[in-house]
Amino acid sequence: MGKVVYEVGNDISTDAIYPGRFMATVLPSETPQFAFADEKEFNAKLTKGEVADGDILLAANNFGCGSSREQAASCLKGYGVIVVARGFARIFMQNAVNLGLQTVVAPEIEASVGDELEITQTEVINHTTGKSYATIAHPPARQAIIDAGGLIAYARKKLLEEKGVKSA
């Protein structure tokens, strides 16, 4: 169960999630401080530790559109939030999968800040309103990376296979 801690609309770009002026900061260990830096209230909530692991950022369609900057995924991953959206832009979605930021596609989702959501294999249950919303599972290509624990681990396994080294 997670609580909706912030809600955004359609077409939220990576410029909003991680403003360009912080792009020279690249390491996943350093990017979280700049998550939604121009949304002062939400950024303060995050940086003051008022968001718990598994809490939910709720978005509408095309979340993460724009730049390929991976900081937009790593900065959110740093807080353990789950992004539940009606839809995601492709590059952001792939970056999230690669880095292990949990994303849930629920095309009809309706919820508000403060609602308690439960995410199951097939739906999101809004326990505050009592309504359930079907989710779209990751296709196998993305699920395989998630199951491996992210793209670094997945690529490392492939690399070892290719070089004929048995992984430990």
């Binding site: 690249v26 390929s68 900057r69 991976e70 995924a73 590059i91 792939q94 970056n95 690669n98 880095l99 296709p139 290509a141 993305r142 395989a144 990376i145 992210g150 793209l151 670094i152 997945y154 690529a155 492939k158 690399l159 290719e162």
Partner: peptide, 19 residues
């Protein structure tokens, strides 16, 4: 693509799991 995906490309010369 993102930077981590590119790291996999630099390692393997191919893009993994492309749909």
């Amino acid at each position: 693509i993102g930077a981590t995906e590119m790291a996999a490309v630099w390692s393997l010369g191919r893009v993994l799991n492309v749909e």
